[in-house]
Amino acid sequence: MTQRWSVRPGPPATRADRHAARLTRELLSGELARAREAALAWRNGLAALFVGLLGFGLIKGRTDVGKLASPYDALVGGALLLCLVFGTLGALLLLRAAHGAPAGVRLPAGVPAAATALHLGDHMETRRTVRALTRGVVLTIACGAMLVAGVALTWYGPEKDGPRILVRTPSGDVCGKPVRTDAGRLLVKTDTGEVTVRLAQAEALAAVDDCPGGPPAE
């Protein structure tokens, strides 16, 4: 036996139902514009934040990344590369959220289209706008974090070891970084501290890349 379904009209809409339907329609009709306004505000705020970060990065510090010891030089390069990638993607997503995709509007099937179908299209575009805005904000903040990390490593990372000098004296060898000379004396910074060598007593001077093992003579 086939079951038959019967459809009957429901109860008439009350005043509260009509008011709720009107509010829902107004919210749906204006949600895309509100999302675009929020995206513009976020874009402007993040742009102002990056102006401050760029000013922070221009404060005088070490300017030559090549002077950093390994692997800090590679870390700075990686942080700056990630900063560029995150910043580019974040800017594109923020532009997508603020101004929409560079594509024409697709109308639903049937012309003239129903108002409900048009509102549904705006609602889907609003969801895409909010998603692009959220991802753009996250990527832009990540870009700023990479920029700050790169600047901090450039400032506070250890310097690459410079040339060493090996001084042979009758009492032993002294090896380290030359600091200064004064009144026939050479001040050498060794691993155990600063050592003063009389140049008149030096038997030989040689520039070396690395000091030989063993503690330097004092």
Rank of each mutant, 00 (worst) to 15 (best):
A207D: 07
G78I: 08
G193W: 15
A74F: 03
K60Y: 11
G150P: 14
P163A: 13
G61D: 09
A20G: 02
V130L: 11
T190S: 05
G57M: 05
A115W: 00
V130A: 08
V51G: 12
V174M: 05
G66T: 15
L81P: 06
T140Y: 06
E26L: 05
L107F: 01
C83F: 01
L80D: 13
G77I: 13
I141F: 12
A183R: 09
W5S: 14
G87N: 08
V85H: 07
H99D: 04
G52A: 13
G45T: 00
I165P: 00
R131I: 01
V65F: 01
R96P: 00
R15V: 12
T181W: 08
T134A: 13
A114C: 02
P215Q: 14
P163M: 15
G162F: 14
Y72P: 15
V111I: 10
P178F: 09
Y156W: 12
P170Y: 06
P112C: 04
D182G: 01
A47V: 00
V188M: 11
G144D: 02
A38W: 06
T154M: 07
G110M: 01
R127V: 04
L23N: 08
L32S: 04
V111W: 00
V167F: 01
L118E: 04
P215K: 14
R198L: 15
E194R: 15
T88Y: 14
G104I: 00
A183I: 04
T126D: 06
G100Q: 07
L95N: 10
A117H: 09
E194S: 09
F50V: 01
M124S: 09
L186A: 06
G61V: 15
A13W: 08
C143Y: 02
S29M: 02
A13Y: 02
G144F: 01
A206H: 13
L81D: 15
D173W: 05
L28E: 10
A103P: 06
V174W: 09
I165F: 07
R135L: 12
A206E: 15
A79H: 08
C211I: 03
E218V: 11
K189Q: 13
C211N: 10
G172E: 09
G144H: 00
L153W: 05
E37Q: 12
C175S: 06
R106S: 13
A132R: 04
V137Y: 11
Y72H: 15
L107P: 01
L95D: 12
L93M: 08
W5F: 13
L54R: 12
V138F: 06
D209K: 15
V208P: 05
L58F: 10
E203V: 04
R127Q: 11
A113D: 08
T116E: 04
R18C: 02
G214P: 06
A97S: 11
G162Q: 14
E194A: 08
G52V: 04
A74D: 13
E159D: 01
K177S: 04
E203K: 13
P12H: 11
K189C: 03
Y72I: 15
H99N: 05
T126E: 05
R25N: 05
A38N: 11
C175A: 07
T116S: 07
L139A: 12
W155S: 02
V151A: 00
L80N: 10
A145H: 07
A145S: 13
A113Q: 06
D182A: 12
A20V: 05
